[in-house]
Design a protein around this nucleic acid. Structure first.
Lengths: 349, 349
DNA sequence: CTGAAAGCGCTAACAA
DNA sequence: TTGTTAGCGCTTTCAG
């Protein structure tokens, strides 16, 4: 299989942990009864229960997961698969925040989390094989691009899936997402309320729902505000700082009179801010900027950026909650959890 | 054990995967021979090998990890334990970068990574139990504080450990670290070369080796440069932005004539920069600043910060390499891998 | 309510 | 070089 002999890993762990067998003996019951107590079965007499419980804590017994998995085919493990297209979305550290949410939700459980990267065909294959072969009870998918078949493939293997962000394909996939469209609208309303009349946007990649939805919100709100021409002032970037710089410069070149701009990611904000500075525009007096808060970088921008904040940590938590729910409730319509965004106004001191 | 009945997770996975038994039959050999092929034993005839290999790919066989673990007591799993003291070090996203390094090193292996947070006694206990009970082959420890007994406890359980950063206790623990002292020295040399004569430092927490070592480097280099009095101009912070702000303000209050400062983390840099601005100091003309690059925040500072860069991603990789080495080489002296830092000079455009 | 017994899929002696 | 066999520790019928 792996083609080479395994190294003889002989780190002799002398302290062999107690087995159920030993617990049962210590409690004066059979292994079956001990197992029932461990698994919380109600069909156990109070005496037996007490005896086994005592034995467990006396011996410091902990169930052997491998043995349990072997028979139950349950792994008590979730996998987080990170789809990372070389040097784009994952460059920014929004990941850490999401992870904290995931862990928070998991910490009340006996579930453990394993991490898998899946960039490149080889790693994708490996990840899919891993998931399909019963190594995990469920999968969390993040940073999906385009119509990635991964969610469908995993579901076809009978493993429940929850995606972060609305998947562009795979109609039946459960997912959690921020209200990206609503955030885009809010940004526009803020700019309009600030008296801006010539809006533009640096939109995200149109092969990701986050990019698409934020743009949709922007377009809808500008039209609702009676600024249909704003829908034409769009430049696209791939969520990176360099792209933000490029897009902002392009917008200003095409329409110098822009006085308000919505930028669909915080990394792009940093780049756009740089472009504005280089072109001699003052922020926010000359051009008002509203960003989208994926990661904790925007607060460090200079001048401080007003942003639409995405509750990433909460999204992580909700992903896990939804997946755990699916585990006990395998069938049913696909669910989507959309969390509201929040406008965070920051002004230079 | 867990006190409540497990929910009946019945997501019927119909597609039962093929077992070694089936592979053996298909190849016309015994299970033992098939196993030998799977594990790359050389004691197999070419014909048998070919037959089994063919059967494996025909059937899409993948070894059942639980079964294998049950007998070999090897899990092919490493755990990354994050020690996160409430709201201090972990606030900054250096974590994501380290994780990428870890994953890079792991991706050439069949090993998988599980993530465990251990803040608070309860979670610490859980983590230790988890590790001690043979769920993993080795442990990676990050963001250790003070004389945390965790490394020693895990090693006592017979599980190899590698820590990120020199542990303050546990003499025998393997670890990887950046050359923090060297970085501090380099920062000072840079400031001296820039003609600064009244140096100060915002040092990190003195219950973490990163804080201690960077300060040591600073002190040593200032004395070597004939500025013994600089050793007195030290203010401490806990690596957070707020602390950096506070410490910088304190330094300037005590010694207004400071014209060069070394700041032991990038988050503290952001805070210090804010303090400098508020107090009307110009950077770098008035006060030159050299930071320490833990996370990708510093580049976004305004003005751009000259920093000592820590190769976090590489450190992650080296952690894994060292741990894998330990797995095959259980005994031997504790090893330390110290990676050099790099001075990154950034100037405002 | 309890126990005996049959495996889950795999590896590792031990024989052949 | 190969096959036979005995478990690894646990859950789960099935009788009692």
């Amino acid at each position: 299989m792996n083609g080479q002999e395994m190294p003889a890993r002989s780190h002799t762990r002398p302290r062999r942990v107690p087995t159920l067998e030993v617990v049962a003996e210590h409690a004066g019951v059979s292994r079956a009864t001990a197992s029932r107590v461990v698994n919380g079965s109600p069909r156990v007499s109070p005496e037996a229960h007490a005896a086994v419980t005592r034995a467990i804590s006396a011996l410091g017994y902990v169930p052997n997961r491998a043995a349990r998995t072997l028979v139950t085919r349950r792994t008590d493990t979730l996998v987080l698969i990170v789809h990372e297209r070389p040097d784009t979305v994952f460059e920014d550290p929004f990941f850490a925040n999401m992870l904290r949410g995931v862990n928070a939700a998991l910490s009340t459980t006996e579930m453990q989390l394993v991490l898998l990267h899946a960039r490149g065909d080889q790693q994708r294959e490996r990840a899919l094989r891993y998931v399909s072969n019963g190594h995990v009870d469920g999968a969390l998918l993040i940073s999906l691009h385009g119509d990635d078949p991964m969610p469908t493939a995993i579901m076809a293997a009978g493993v429940p899936v929850v995606a972060m962000g609305r998947p562009l394909s795979g109609r039946g996939t459960d997912y959690v997402d921020a209200d990206n469209a609503g955030g885009g609208e809010e940004a526009v309303r803020h700019l309009v309320a600030a008296g801006r009349s010539c809006l533009a946007t640096v939109a995200g990649p149109q092969d990701m729902s986050a990019g698409i939805d934020r743009l949709r919100g922007y377009v809808g709100a500008t039209q609702a505000a009676g600024m249909p021409d704003a829908a034409d002032r769009v430049a696209y970037g791939d969520f990176t700082e360099a792209a933000g710089h490029r897009a902002m410069a392009l917008l200003l070149e095409r329409t110098p009179e822009i006085d308000g701009v919505f930028i669909a990611s915080d990394l792009m904000c940093i780049g756009a801010l740089r472009a504005l500075r280089e072109l001699g525009r003052r922020v926010p007096d000359d051009v008002a900027v509203v960003g989208f808060d994926d990661a904790p970088l925007a607060p460090y921008a200079n001048p401080p950026l007003t942003t639409v904040r995405q509750p990433i940590r909460l999204l992580g938590q909700e992903m896990v909650r939804l997946l755990l729910h699916r585990l006990s409730e395998p069938r049913g319509d696909a669910k989507a959890i959309i969390l509201p965004t929040e406008l965070v106004v920051r002004s230079s001191s």
